[in-house]
Design a protein around this nucleic acid. Sequence first.
RNA 1: GGAGACGUGGCCGAGUGGUUUAAGGCGCACGCCUGGAAAGCGUGUUGAGCGCAAGUUCUCGCAGGUUCGAAUCCUGUCGUCUCCGCCA
Length: 422
Amino acid sequence: MLDIKLIRENPEVLDNALKARGAEPKAQELLALDEKRRQVMTDLQELQQRRNEISSLVGSLKAKGEDASHLFEEMKTIGPKMKDLQEVERQAQEDFTGLLEGLPNIQDADTPEGQDEENNVVVHTYGEPTSFDFEPKAHYDLGEELNQMSTELGAKIAGSRFTWLQGDIARLERALGQYMLNKQTEQNGYTEVNPPLMCNADSMYAVGQLPKFEEDLFKTAEGYYLLPTAEAPLTNYARNEIFSEKDLPIQLTALTPCFRSEAGSAGRDTRGYLRQHQFMKVEMVWFVKPEDSMEIHEKMRRHAEEILEDLKLPYRTVRLCAGDLSANARRCYDLEVWLPAQNKYREISSCSNFGDFQARRMKARYRDEERNTQFIHTLNGSGLAVGRTLIAVMENYQQADGSIKVPEVLIPYMGKDIIKAS
RNA sequence: GGAGACGUGGCCGAGUGGUUUAAGGCGCACGCCUGGAAAGCGUGUUGAGCGCAAGUUCUCGCAGGUUCGAAUCCUGUCGUCUCCGCCA
């Protein structure tokens, strides 16, 4: 959620930001609703003030044992007036916050222009696309031939976009998750969290999953939502909190399954393990003081990149252009890993700085040196998507005979250096 | 699942219809005192909205309702705890 005060002062900043994202200007409409809301609030408060005055007068008269009934006359007229005005106020607030909460964040000034991913800017490249002296196979073919990955079984047991892993490939995915989580906790300072895997609606609203993306979420009969990313539970740690300055920064990480209905992705990436209803991911979340968020963002991006470098997987990092930026983000890097079978780079991590946008919506604050409360800045990033990392390892480490070499850093976790057909 | 109890500020805790503008205490901050500290004394201390300001309004888990007036009464809801049952 944006700060209305900033928009009052600089409405053109909002409209320029919306334009860059490919959206219509909204400042004028928003300010009109703001004006109306404030007028109604003032009117209502005058009535409330009068009611409080009379009420306290009644109290003092009664305390002295005197008659106060002559004051009820006016009070009786205030009641209905207040009720009407409260309804007007509620509507005005709803109109105003409805529009304000629907607006995306204002992206950083140096955000690349552009409408879609074509205009993202490559800022960093590691390694070269893996070369083979044979025709590399897709991970799903490798997995089937190893008899350790079955979409058929996934479909039989659950449905499409579910996969059955077994044997060394199942273990490889677990090894990847362990490796990442250990690295983030032992070397990069994150606190390991084992959060609820379902969230209530309040939490989902706080991180912006609701109301916009309801159709992408799995919902239980009891009204819980399966988490689409551990960002949801981890970020909600800060909801309605006021941290002391000395508490910050706070950095959390979790290895969790993520559940997405992929309602809008019918027909995309239908083969293989790339786009599943359920996948494992290590998530990193930071709560920081405003002045630190830019620096932390770069740091967190490195925490993601280093995993790929440890695994010696070729990748590139892109800075998202305005049109490709998610609504909450003011600045975002995507990490894209090389997938030989697709002959292209595919997203494997997204590292975002939300500024105070998310914090304002969920009332996450800290008390600064002058004892004022200020909104914190929130950041999150994947470190990394484990399922997609499994694909990348399988495809980049495949051998001519269909076996898969185990990346060096994972050998201790696997107890072997090569995965062969079982 | 059954029965019951309870939700008040950073924490404890008083408050059962009207100067509650939420007592009192603890903690915390600042000041006085001190060679320094402790103790003691004094002041401050929920959060948010509107306003240039003075100020004003809201906030007693949340949402409704009753009433001239609600922390207080009623209904619903969420949460916590206790006992019983079931259970990994």
